[in-house]
Design a protein around this nucleic acid. Structure first.
Lengths: 108, 108
DNA sequence: TGACTATTTGGCAATATATGCAATAATGAA
DNA sequence: TTCATTATTGCATATATTGCCAAATAGTCA
């Protein structure tokens, strides 16, 4: 594969990989409703704040979210609302799989 | 977080995670053009066949692709073409990030 | 300044993932 | 049956990810 093509798939994979964790998906979903500070997200997620902070930095590093410090708090928000289309894509796959499983069960 | 909600995010994350690898993205992209056997994909990817086979099983396990054995060969194809929307989502993010980087450079 | 709050960072152990090689199926051809 | 082809599986190794604790950093207020 040509290096430039390879690089393109790697760039895409980095973004998708960043989304590939339940906690990070939850965070993206939550930020779609509006900005949240780390503390708020930590309470919702129910993990250590350092853990949540690291998840946030993963998403930030690939450009999915951005942060803004105001006073003591750091507020995060989606950098592009388009990222939400991910959920639609994923749901379609899950639906297809579920439907075919049902069909397989019924045809036995 | 409620267990059912948690489970939902985990199910989504499994699918996204399966897509989060450059080789697997390439495979999905290629299968979007039509079915391919393992051998063909292996040549295109340029890795060991066992490696490609394992990537295929990752995608298959989450329901993104399906296989069919015909003679000596195993042909893989997308289970739902909808999976291709992923690329559009990802490109949008990359575009946004690139544009904002440019803007930041120009405003210095 | 010092105390307090919010967040990030460093370090570490546990776990998961990626890859190639070798061995093993499964199929078809001679 | 024996050989060649295609693909998968088992194993070993290297690398990456996750999560928590503790320590460091940054901002606010008395």
């Amino acid at each position: 594969m040509r290096p430039s093509v390879q690089a393109r798939y790697e760039a895409r994979a980095r973004i998708i990989k960043a989304m590939g964790h339940p906690t990070r998906l939850f965070i993206v979903d939550e930020l779609a409703k509006g900005e949240r500070c780390v503390n708020e997200l930590t309470e919702m997620v129910g993990a250590d704040m350092s853990t949540v902070s690291k998840h946030l930095s993963v998403l930030k590093n690939v450009g999915v979210i951005m942060d803004e410090k105001r006073g003591l708090q750091v507020f995060y928000r989606l950098r592009t609302p388009c990222i939400m289309k991910f959920f639609g894509c994923v749901e379609s796959v899950m639906k297809t799989v579920a439907e075919e499983s049902m069909a397989a069960l019924n045809s036995r």
